[in-house]
Protein backbone atom coordinates (compact mmCIF):
# COMPACT_ATOMS: atom_id res chain seq x y z
CA UNK A 1 0.00 0.00 0.00
CA UNK A 2 1.46 3.33 -0.96
CA UNK A 3 0.14 6.52 0.53
CA UNK A 4 1.04 9.91 -0.80
CA UNK A 5 3.19 11.52 1.81
CA UNK A 6 1.66 14.75 3.08
CA UNK A 7 5.14 16.22 3.15
CA UNK A 8 6.20 18.05 0.04
CA UNK A 9 9.88 17.47 -0.38
CA UNK A 10 11.72 20.65 -1.21
CA UNK A 11 15.12 19.04 -1.48
CA UNK A 12 16.23 15.53 -2.32
CA UNK A 13 13.67 13.35 -0.60
CA UNK A 14 11.31 11.48 -2.85
CA UNK A 15 7.72 12.55 -2.34
CA UNK A 16 6.52 8.97 -2.40
CA UNK A 17 7.54 6.75 0.48
CA UNK A 18 6.21 3.43 1.66
CA UNK A 19 4.51 3.88 5.01
CA UNK A 20 3.93 1.88 8.13
CA UNK A 21 0.33 0.95 8.87
CA UNK A 22 -1.29 3.37 11.37
CA UNK A 23 -1.20 0.73 14.08
CA UNK A 24 0.75 -0.07 17.22
CA UNK A 25 4.10 -1.82 16.91
CA UNK A 26 6.81 -2.99 19.26
CA UNK A 27 10.58 -3.12 19.28
CA UNK A 28 11.98 -6.44 18.10
CA UNK A 29 14.22 -8.00 20.71
CA UNK A 30 16.35 -11.09 20.15
CA UNK A 31 14.86 -12.64 23.30
CA UNK A 32 11.49 -12.75 21.54
CA UNK A 33 12.41 -13.98 18.05
CA UNK A 34 11.15 -17.53 18.46
CA UNK A 35 8.00 -16.62 20.35
CA UNK A 36 7.04 -14.15 17.64
CA UNK A 37 7.49 -16.75 14.93
CA UNK A 38 5.50 -19.31 16.91
CA UNK A 39 2.65 -17.02 17.93
CA UNK A 40 2.36 -14.42 15.17
CA UNK A 41 1.22 -11.72 17.60
CA UNK A 42 -1.19 -9.14 16.22
CA UNK A 43 1.05 -6.10 16.08
CA UNK A 44 1.12 -3.55 13.30
CA UNK A 45 4.89 -3.61 12.78
CA UNK A 46 8.25 -4.26 14.38
CA UNK A 47 11.10 -1.83 14.80
CA UNK A 48 14.80 -2.65 15.03
CA UNK A 49 17.88 -0.60 15.71
CA UNK A 50 19.85 -0.56 12.49
CA UNK A 51 23.23 -0.94 14.17
CA UNK A 52 22.30 -4.27 15.75
CA UNK A 53 21.87 -5.65 12.25
CA UNK A 54 25.01 -4.23 10.68
CA UNK A 55 26.68 -7.59 11.21
CA UNK A 56 27.61 -10.02 8.45
CA UNK A 57 25.29 -12.94 9.16
CA UNK A 58 24.03 -15.30 11.80
CA UNK A 59 20.83 -15.52 13.86
CA UNK A 60 19.97 -11.80 13.86
CA UNK A 61 19.62 -11.75 10.07
CA UNK A 62 18.02 -15.19 10.01
CA UNK A 63 15.22 -14.14 12.35
CA UNK A 64 14.78 -10.63 11.03
CA UNK A 65 14.38 -12.09 7.55
CA UNK A 66 11.65 -14.47 8.72
CA UNK A 67 9.83 -11.81 10.71
CA UNK A 68 10.08 -9.30 7.87
CA UNK A 69 8.22 -11.78 5.65
CA UNK A 70 5.24 -11.49 7.99
CA UNK A 71 5.29 -7.93 9.33
CA UNK A 72 5.96 -4.37 8.24
CA UNK A 73 9.30 -3.11 9.52
CA UNK A 74 10.72 0.16 10.78
CA UNK A 75 14.49 0.55 10.89
CA UNK A 76 15.60 3.02 13.51
CA UNK A 77 19.19 4.22 13.38
CA UNK A 78 21.04 5.11 16.54
CA UNK A 79 24.52 5.68 15.16
CA UNK A 80 24.42 8.09 12.23
CA UNK A 81 25.24 11.11 14.42
CA UNK A 82 23.33 13.57 12.22
CA UNK A 83 24.20 16.50 14.46
CA UNK A 84 27.94 15.92 14.74
CA UNK A 85 30.35 18.75 13.92
CA UNK A 86 32.05 16.54 11.39
CA UNK A 87 31.12 14.89 8.11
CA UNK A 88 28.82 11.87 8.20
CA UNK A 89 30.56 8.52 8.28
CA UNK A 90 30.17 7.46 4.65
CA UNK A 91 30.97 3.86 5.38
CA UNK A 92 28.21 3.76 7.96
CA UNK A 93 25.78 5.34 5.51
CA UNK A 94 26.70 2.75 2.91
CA UNK A 95 26.09 -0.05 5.38
CA UNK A 96 22.71 1.46 6.24
CA UNK A 97 21.89 1.63 2.54
CA UNK A 98 22.65 -2.08 2.18
CA UNK A 99 20.55 -2.92 5.21
CA UNK A 100 17.59 -0.94 3.87
CA UNK A 101 18.03 -2.50 0.46
CA UNK A 102 17.95 -5.95 2.03
CA UNK A 103 14.92 -5.51 4.30
CA UNK A 104 12.91 -2.85 2.43
CA UNK A 105 11.52 -1.30 5.62
CA UNK A 106 8.41 0.87 5.51
CA UNK A 107 10.16 3.52 7.59
CA UNK A 108 13.68 4.66 8.36
CA UNK A 109 14.33 7.05 11.21
CA UNK A 110 17.22 8.69 13.03
CA UNK A 111 17.74 11.18 15.83
CA UNK A 112 18.21 14.91 16.15
CA UNK A 113 21.40 14.38 18.13
CA UNK A 114 25.08 13.58 17.86
CA UNK A 115 26.77 10.44 19.09
CA UNK A 116 30.27 10.47 17.66
CA UNK A 117 33.32 12.68 17.82
CA UNK A 118 36.41 12.05 15.73
CA UNK A 119 36.46 8.30 15.38
CA UNK A 120 34.93 7.70 18.81
CA UNK A 121 31.36 6.47 19.08
CA UNK A 122 29.73 7.47 22.36
CA UNK A 123 26.55 5.38 22.17
CA UNK A 124 24.38 8.14 23.58
CA UNK A 125 22.12 10.68 21.92
CA UNK A 126 23.81 13.95 22.82
CA UNK A 127 22.13 17.37 22.72
CA UNK A 128 22.55 20.09 20.11
CA UNK A 129 22.69 23.86 20.34
CA UNK A 130 19.82 25.20 18.25
CA UNK A 131 21.48 27.87 16.17
CA UNK A 132 21.98 28.59 12.49
CA UNK A 133 25.25 26.71 12.26
CA UNK A 134 23.64 23.56 13.64
CA UNK A 135 20.62 23.99 11.41
CA UNK A 136 22.76 24.25 8.29
CA UNK A 137 24.82 21.24 9.33
CA UNK A 138 21.90 19.00 10.28
CA UNK A 139 20.05 19.86 7.07
CA UNK A 140 23.13 19.10 4.96
CA UNK A 141 23.50 15.74 6.68
CA UNK A 142 19.84 14.85 6.24
CA UNK A 143 20.02 15.87 2.57
CA UNK A 144 23.01 13.59 2.15
CA UNK A 145 21.23 10.68 3.84
CA UNK A 146 17.99 11.09 1.93
CA UNK A 147 19.73 11.42 -1.37
CA UNK A 148 21.89 8.33 -0.74
CA UNK A 149 19.02 6.23 0.58
CA UNK A 150 16.53 7.61 -1.94
CA UNK A 151 13.85 7.80 0.69
CA UNK A 152 12.48 10.06 3.34
CA UNK A 153 14.11 10.01 6.75
CA UNK A 154 11.96 10.45 9.83
CA UNK A 155 13.78 12.66 12.35
CA UNK A 156 13.14 12.00 16.03
CA UNK A 157 12.83 14.83 18.52
CA UNK A 158 15.27 14.23 21.38
CA UNK A 159 14.98 13.89 25.13
CA UNK A 160 17.52 16.29 26.64
CA UNK A 161 18.81 17.20 30.08
CA UNK A 162 20.62 20.46 29.35
CA UNK A 163 20.12 23.43 27.04
CA UNK A 164 22.78 25.60 25.44
CA UNK A 165 23.22 29.24 26.31
CA UNK A 166 23.95 30.14 22.69
CA UNK A 167 20.87 28.47 21.19
CA UNK A 168 19.05 31.05 19.12
CA UNK A 169 15.78 29.23 18.50
CA UNK A 170 13.62 26.80 20.38
CA UNK A 171 13.59 23.11 19.60
CA UNK A 172 10.18 22.97 17.91
CA UNK A 173 11.06 25.87 15.58
CA UNK A 174 14.39 24.23 14.80
CA UNK A 175 12.70 20.95 13.90
CA UNK A 176 10.11 22.79 11.84
CA UNK A 177 12.84 24.45 9.84
CA UNK A 178 14.71 21.17 9.30
CA UNK A 179 11.52 19.54 8.02
CA UNK A 180 10.78 22.52 5.77
CA UNK A 181 14.27 22.64 4.29
CA UNK A 182 14.92 18.91 3.82
CA UNK A 183 11.49 17.40 3.31
CA UNK A 184 12.25 14.86 6.02
CA UNK A 185 9.44 13.56 8.17
CA UNK A 186 9.07 13.70 11.93
CA UNK A 187 9.23 10.78 14.28
CA UNK A 188 7.33 12.30 17.16
CA UNK A 189 8.55 10.78 20.41
CA UNK A 190 5.81 11.79 22.82
CA UNK A 191 7.81 10.59 25.79
CA UNK A 192 10.77 12.70 24.71
CA UNK A 193 8.52 15.71 24.31
CA UNK A 194 7.21 15.21 27.83
CA UNK A 195 10.64 14.49 29.34
CA UNK A 196 12.22 17.55 27.74
CA UNK A 197 9.28 19.74 28.68
CA UNK A 198 9.58 18.79 32.33
CA UNK A 199 13.36 19.02 32.26
CA UNK A 200 13.41 22.48 30.69
CA UNK A 201 10.15 23.83 32.07
CA UNK A 202 8.62 24.13 28.60
CA UNK A 203 4.90 24.26 27.98
CA UNK A 204 4.46 20.84 26.41
CA UNK A 205 1.23 21.84 24.65
CA UNK A 206 2.89 24.84 23.05
CA UNK A 207 5.86 22.69 22.11
CA UNK A 208 3.68 20.08 20.40
CA UNK A 209 1.61 22.65 18.55
CA UNK A 210 4.75 24.37 17.32
CA UNK A 211 6.08 21.14 15.78
CA UNK A 212 5.47 20.37 12.09
CA UNK A 213 2.74 17.88 12.98
CA UNK A 214 1.74 17.46 9.33
CA UNK A 215 5.06 15.66 8.81
CA UNK A 216 4.69 13.06 11.55
CA UNK A 217 5.25 9.59 10.05
CA UNK A 218 5.59 7.65 13.28
CA UNK A 219 5.14 8.07 17.02
CA UNK A 220 7.33 6.65 19.78
CA UNK A 221 6.10 5.94 23.29
CA UNK A 222 8.35 4.85 26.14
CA UNK A 223 8.83 5.02 29.86
CA UNK A 224 11.15 7.28 31.83
CA UNK A 225 12.94 7.22 35.17
CA UNK A 226 12.66 10.09 37.59
CA UNK A 227 15.52 11.95 39.21
CA UNK A 228 16.23 15.40 40.66
CA UNK A 229 18.51 18.16 39.43
CA UNK A 230 20.89 20.20 41.63
CA UNK A 231 18.00 22.43 42.74
CA UNK A 232 15.78 19.47 43.63
CA UNK A 233 13.50 19.93 40.60
CA UNK A 234 12.20 16.91 38.69
CA UNK A 235 14.65 15.60 36.13
CA UNK A 236 13.22 12.87 33.92
CA UNK A 237 15.54 10.35 32.33
CA UNK A 238 14.49 8.77 29.05
CA UNK A 239 15.61 5.27 29.99
CA UNK A 240 13.22 3.12 27.93
CA UNK A 241 13.05 0.84 30.91
CA UNK A 242 9.55 1.33 32.29
CA UNK A 243 5.93 1.25 31.17
CA UNK A 244 4.59 4.41 29.50
CA UNK A 245 3.64 7.01 32.11
CA UNK A 246 0.00 8.10 32.48
CA UNK A 247 0.90 11.68 31.57
CA UNK A 248 2.48 10.46 28.34
CA UNK A 249 -0.59 8.37 27.48
CA UNK A 250 -2.74 11.51 27.93
CA UNK A 251 -0.43 13.50 25.71
CA UNK A 252 -0.47 10.73 23.12
CA UNK A 253 -4.27 10.79 23.02
CA UNK A 254 -4.18 14.54 22.44
CA UNK A 255 -1.64 14.10 19.65
CA UNK A 256 -3.84 11.48 17.96
CA UNK A 257 -6.76 13.90 18.09
CA UNK A 258 -4.59 16.47 16.34
CA UNK A 259 -3.06 14.29 13.63
CA UNK A 260 -5.18 11.15 13.40
CA UNK A 261 -4.12 7.54 13.69
CA UNK A 262 -0.37 7.25 13.23
CA UNK A 263 1.99 4.25 13.42
CA UNK A 264 3.01 4.05 17.06
CA UNK A 265 5.97 2.20 18.53
CA UNK A 266 6.21 1.06 22.13
CA UNK A 267 9.92 1.30 22.90
CA UNK A 268 11.65 -0.80 25.52
CA UNK A 269 15.42 -1.16 25.59
CA UNK A 270 16.15 -1.68 29.25
CA UNK A 271 14.81 -4.34 31.60
CA UNK A 272 13.08 -6.09 28.69
CA UNK A 273 9.86 -7.69 30.01
CA UNK A 274 8.19 -10.84 28.66
CA UNK A 275 6.70 -10.45 25.19
CA UNK A 276 3.17 -10.52 26.60
CA UNK A 277 3.71 -7.36 28.61
CA UNK A 278 5.01 -5.52 25.56
CA UNK A 279 2.00 -6.75 23.60
CA UNK A 280 -0.35 -5.54 26.32
CA UNK A 281 1.14 -2.08 26.14
CA UNK A 282 0.86 -2.14 22.37
CA UNK A 283 -2.79 -3.20 22.70
CA UNK A 284 -3.45 -0.19 24.87
CA UNK A 285 -2.02 2.06 22.18
CA UNK A 286 -4.01 0.15 19.56
CA UNK A 287 -7.24 0.77 21.46
CA UNK A 288 -6.51 4.50 21.46
CA UNK A 289 -5.69 4.34 17.75
CA UNK A 290 -8.93 2.47 17.02
CA UNK A 291 -10.92 5.13 18.85
CA UNK A 292 -9.50 7.79 16.54
CA UNK A 293 -10.62 6.32 13.18
CA UNK A 294 -11.25 7.49 10.57
CA UNK A 295 -8.11 9.51 10.37
CA UNK A 296 -7.50 12.86 8.91
CA UNK A 297 -4.63 11.39 6.97
CA UNK A 298 -6.56 8.52 5.47
CA UNK A 299 -9.36 10.87 4.54
CA UNK A 300 -6.91 12.99 2.59
CA UNK A 301 -5.10 10.10 0.94
Amino acid sequence: MMIVSPTQATNGAPALSPQLPPRAGIGLKSQHYQQILERNPAVGFFEVHAENYLVAGGPFHHYLGLIRERYPLSIHGVGLSLGAQQPLDREHLERLASLLERYQPQAFSEHLAWSSHGDVFLNDLLPLAYDNATLTRVCAHIDQVQSRLQRQLLLENPATYVEFAHSSMDEAAFIGEVVRRTGCGLLLDVNNAYVSSINHHWDVQAYLHALPLHAVGEIHLAGFAEDRDAAGERLLIDNHGAPVDAAVWRLYTEVLQLIGATPTLLERDNAIPPLDLLLEEAQHAQALLDAIQPTRRQASA
Partner: peptide, 9 residues
Protein backbone atom coordinates in the same frame (compact mmCIF):
# COMPACT_ATOMS: atom_id res chain seq x y z
CA UNK B 1 20.07 -15.30 21.35
CA UNK B 2 22.70 -12.81 22.21
CA UNK B 3 21.28 -9.39 22.84
CA UNK B 4 21.53 -6.53 20.45
CA UNK B 5 23.99 -4.10 21.99
CA UNK B 6 23.09 -0.91 20.16
CA UNK B 7 20.10 -0.04 22.29
CA UNK B 8 18.75 3.23 23.61
CA UNK B 9 18.77 2.45 27.30
Amino acid sequence: AMQGKNDCA
